[in-house]
Structures are given as structure tokens and as C-alpha cells.
Simulated assay, not measured.
Amino acid sequence: MSTLEEHVDIDVPIDTAWDSLHRVETYPQFLEGVRQARSEGDGSRAHLNVYAGGRAQEFDAEIVDYGDERLMEWQTTGGPELSGTFSLLPIDREHTRVQARIEYDPGAVKDAFGGPKGFAQANAIERLVRSDLEHFKELAEQAR
């Protein structure tokens, strides 16, 4: 498994960032390739319709919240093996750091989504995650 860690500082209080992270229906607005997303059940699952690697795919993700710690863990089910965490840390009353940690099997990602292999793949995934975090920042800051 490979691990990627990125973070972004956003200009909103931690509660606003936490609420924005939990609006599954807005995921297509900041996650590249996600065409549609919906929360299922009691909010512990998300269903994602994704277009990547030249093909449409659907898969689910299990979500575990640790609200008091402002930590969300997720893991895909029935699709490419991906998992990760989002940690929110207060910088001060009006600013929050969002840390993303993603674990993935490079071979499974290539099989599921196409793209380069090896070092080029790691760079592409890093750029994608960084871009997604910047788009999340924009979305959360507009929600104020």
C-alpha cells in the first residue's frame, strides 16, 4: 500500500469545515471525477458515481466519524481498494487545517482508473488530491 498525506488551511471555523465535509451531495463540486454522490443509511455510507480512466464506475464507501476528535475515516467497498482519513485541526477560531491521508494500492488504482504507473502515478495522485483539497477550501469558504 502507498500512503499520501496532504493538507490545506481554510478560512472558516472548524464546525463550518466539518459540516462542509459531511455534505456528501457536494462531493462532485470538489472531487475530480465524481459525477454524483449521495449519503445512504444513517450517513455511514456514501454511494459515488465516478468517471475516471475513460469509463464510468460506481462504488460505495463506508464512513466512520469521530466527531469529538473531528476525524472522518473512510474505505471503499465494492470498488478499487482505497481508504483514508480527514482530520480537522483548529488553527484559531476562524481558521482550520484539513489534513487528508489516503492509502491505496497502486496496481488497483491503475486497473480501476487507468493512468501512469510508478512514480508518475504517485505524482498524478498527489496533484489530484492537492487540487481536490483546494476545491474543498473554496467550497467551504463560500458556505460561510
Rank of each mutant, 00 (worst) to 15 (best):
D19M: 04
S20H: 01
H22A: 03
H22C: 03
H22G: 07
R23T: 05
R23S: 01
R23Q: 03
V24C: 15
V24H: 10
E25I: 15
T26Q: 13
P28C: 09
Q29S: 02
L31E: 07
L31R: 12
L31I: 15
L31K: 09
L31M: 15
E32A: 14
E32P: 01
G33M: 11
Q36I: 08
A37V: 12
S39G: 09
S39K: 10
E40D: 11
G41K: 10
S44W: 00
R45E: 07
R45M: 03
R45V: 12
H47V: 12
H47S: 08
L48S: 11
N49S: 10
N49Q: 14
V50G: 09
A52P: 06
G53H: 05
G53P: 04
G54P: 02
G54F: 02
G54K: 06
G54N: 07
R55E: 12
R55T: 12
R55V: 07
R55A: 11
A56H: 12
Q57M: 11
Q57I: 09
E58L: 14
E58G: 15
D60Q: 08
D60V: 02
D60A: 13
A61F: 04
I63W: 00
I63D: 00
V64E: 13
D65K: 09
D65M: 08
D65I: 02
Y66W: 02
Y66C: 14
G67N: 15
G67E: 15
G67W: 05
G67F: 07
E69W: 03
E69L: 15
M72G: 02
E73L: 08
W74E: 06
W74H: 07
W74T: 07
W74F: 11
W74V: 14
Q75A: 09
T77D: 07
G78W: 04
G79W: 12
G79F: 04
P80G: 00
P80T: 02
E81C: 09
E81L: 07
E81Q: 14
E81K: 06
L82V: 10
L82G: 01
S83I: 04
T85G: 09
T85Q: 04
T85P: 05
S87A: 11
S87C: 04
L88H: 06
L88V: 13
L88E: 01
P90H: 05
I91Y: 01
D92W: 00
H95E: 02
H95A: 03
H95R: 08
T96K: 04
T96W: 00
R97M: 10
V98D: 02
A100R: 02
A100P: 08
R101E: 05
R101N: 08
I102Y: 00
E103D: 05
Y104S: 06
G107D: 13
A108V: 10
A108Y: 03
K110G: 01
D111K: 15
A112C: 14
F113C: 10
F113P: 02
F113I: 15
F113Q: 03
G114P: 07
